[in-house]
Design a protein around this nucleic acid. Structure first.
Lengths: 214, 214
DNA sequence: CCTTAGTACTAGACCGGCTAGTACTGGACC
DNA sequence: GGTCCAGTACTAGCCGGTCTAGTACTAAGG
């Protein structure tokens, strides 16, 4: 009768992944020792090695778990835009949401971590790019396509338009965060102002052909 | 008569920095040992420590040297745009130039290196951001301001316009390079097509108000 | 032109500290 | 009694940085 049999082993594994995530994100790959992870997980080193063959594998699981959790969030935001009525103020709202979602402290650290280790573990970075970055672009592109079909936008190449959207939105804040480690990060208000300004420009470039401009 | 006064000491120092640059860029900070740098520079470890107090200092010099060399290149590209007559095809040319300059293999590796170590050495990343990234934006913004003055563009906020320009231009290729380590990089032609498409969109958003569109 | 003295350099041993990963033991829970 | 696991000791190896003993270069002075 396996009621809660996923307990011991599975719970320990979750604990380990959680502790490892915190440690890796906070101190980087080389800065984190397996001993430390074991201790923080309240587990012995041996147990860590029972669940994960070696450090690289554990790191991979950490990244994959976090990435999966991230894509959910993106899809949720993109879903807001399918309803055409959200058009006028809707794009603005979506831009703000993407901004705050993507500029979240933890997510930024994770991003830096992946970039930092893209050399050591190329498959990881590639995965993240395809399942995170490209997917985000693709689902935004689908939205734009639909809005174009309904004559609410004019995006001959929706994927390109999506890349322009995110590029304009995030180029400055993302680079600042990547390079400066996001010490004294931008305020919410600042980011939202930037998002609004970007939406305005985006609509000038890709806005509806019928009405001239709001 | 100091003909070749860059005598042994200075020459050795250059050798060390060069070897260190190659090593750091190729294998990262932790992946590179001082011993290795010394060997590759054809120099003894002791000599390395005579010129640079410790590993971090050496790393800092490496980054600073490369960054200085980079800003030169950017300024050269931006300078192309001051001549108003280059307006029609000029922006396209500048975009292509920025694209190929920034997507250079070595420069990308350097960029990854800085991001990877932005936590460990925050001042370095901050410097690079201010003297590289922001400066690039600022000089582009100056160009846009001038072109707006001459009624060739319409950029109420030239700095924002510059950030939109670079964001649209580089968001995809830069992220791909950062995450995937730039294995099988995009072809020159592909990058230039992307640059052209971006310029077109940019001109729709910020183009001259007199003529409707080319 | 040669000597001399001071400085830069080499080669390699060496130290202290840290880490991935393994092996073993004694106890807890089933 | 059997299984799992914490705790800990251990192996093996790397690396930053120092130290020493001896060698090459350089520049001033006889």
């Amino acid at each position: 009768m396996k009621v809660d049999v996923e307990s011991r082993s599975a719970r320990k594994e979750r604990d380990i992944i959680h502790a490892a995530t915190v440690a890796f994100v906070g101190q980087g790959y080389d800065g984190t020792s397996m001993e430390e992870i074991a201790t923080k997980a309240g587990v012995s080193k041996q147990t860590v090695y029972k669940h994960f063959v070696d450090k690289e594998t554990l790191f991979g699981e950490v990244i994959r778990a976090s990435a999966a959790q991230a894509t959910e969030a993106f899809d949720a935001v993109a879903a807001l835009l399918t309803e055409a009525e959200f058009m006028t103020g809707g794009l603005r709202k979506v831009a703000r949401r993407f901004m705050t979602t993507l500029m979240d402290e933890e997510r930024l650290k994770l991003r830096r971590l992946i970039i930092a280790n893209a050399d050591r573990m190329p498959q990881l970075g590639r995965d993240w790019y395809e399942k995170g970055f490209e997917r985000m672009l693709a689902s935004m592109a689908t939205c734009f396509q639909q809005l174009t079909d309904r004559r609410l936008l004019r995006t001959p190449d929706p994927y390109l338009a999506a890349s322009h959207f995110f590029g304009m939105l995030l180029w400055i804040p993302m680079n600042e965060a990547m390079f400066t480690g996001n010490k004294n990060p931008r305020s919410q208000a600042e980011l939202e102002r930037h998002a609004d300004a970007t939406v305005e420009t985006f609509l000038v470039a890709y806005g509806e052909p019928a009405k001239p401009s709001a």
